[in-house]
């Protein structure tokens, strides 16, 4: 041990070229791998997504045999998305029967459930002025309890005919005559009420809230612009 401070031994400088070579080389390799896989899987993924969407749309609009996605444009009309599936914006899915007549519009909606956000798709049939189907797309409700919003046949049956007819409001615009609401299990009396689930009150209430909010936004719009959905051909 000397009294003088030990001379600072300089670390050998980091090997710049090998570092660069290694990182760039590995990075390039990884990039190529990712790009190749992306190109290879993209058609399958997109087909899967389209199929899943179509299944869901047919599910909530039982009469539908084909479907098409429409965007809601700022200027207040619907426009078919067409080939360019990646266009962003609020959208709905119109369902047509075998003759190409509009039989319903499927709308996606979401809101807070008991555990996490619930996403649902529901079908609106303009001639019946009613919701004709609802399907939970995503939920993390408690298994066996909150998830009865998906599994309870009696609850799901609520959405086969749920009245959402419109009436003119004071300012001339249209609005839902009777907003959707959940009632205690077994006490449904009116066609716009949802029979709740004993033991899963919160989740059932959440679905009612999601549908009420979404339907009062979308259904007046759709009803006013029904012509946008008519297919030109056939």
């Amino acid at each position: 041990m000397s009294a003088q401070p030990a001379p600072i031994v300089a670390e050998p400088p980091p090997p710049t070229w090998p570092m660069l070579r290694a990182m760039v080389g590995v990075g390039l390799l990884c990039g190529i791998l990712i790009a190749t896989t992306f190109l290879a899987t993209r058609p399958t993924i997109e087909r899967n997504q389209a199929e899943a969407l179509q299944r869901a749309v047919f599910d909530v609009i039982p009469k539908a045999r084909s479907s098409e996605t429409y965007l809601w444009l700022e200027e207040g009309r619907f426009e078919a998305v067409g080939e360019d599936a990646r266009r962003e914006g609020p959208r709905v899915h119109a369902g047509y029967d075998a003759e190409g007549r509009l039989v319903g519009v499927a709308i996606e909606a979401s809101g807070m459930g008991y555990q996490d956000v619930i996403r649902v798709l529901y079908g609106y049939a303009p001639d019946a002025a009613a919701v004709v189907g609802m399907r939970v797309l995503e939920s993390r409700e408690t298994p066996g309890l909150g998830d009865r919003i998906e599994t309870d046949a009696a609850f799901v049956a609520n959405f086969e005919a749920l009245d959402v007819s419109l009436e003119p409001a004071a300012d001339g615009a249209m609005r839902i005559a009777h907003p959707i609401e959940a009632v205690k299990s077994g006490s449904k009396q009116n066609p716009w009420e949802i029979d709740g689930i004993t033991g899963a009150t919160i989740s059932a209430q959440a679905i009612a809230n999601i549908l009420r909010r979404s339907s009062s936004d979308w259904i007046p719009r759709i009803q006013q612009r029904l012509d946008d959905f008519q297919r030109g051909e056939s």
Binding site: P14, P15, P18, M19, R21, A22, M23, G25, V26, G27, C30, L33, I34, T37
Partner: peptide, 21 residues
């Protein structure tokens, strides 16, 4: 070929790539 100074970064890069795949 990977110097020890950048080895962790390289590992993460490789792992993240395969996770993406």
């Amino acid at each position: 070929v990977v110097p020890k100074q950048v080895r962790i970064a390289t590992y993460i890069l490789v792992i993240a790539t395969f996770v993406t795949l």
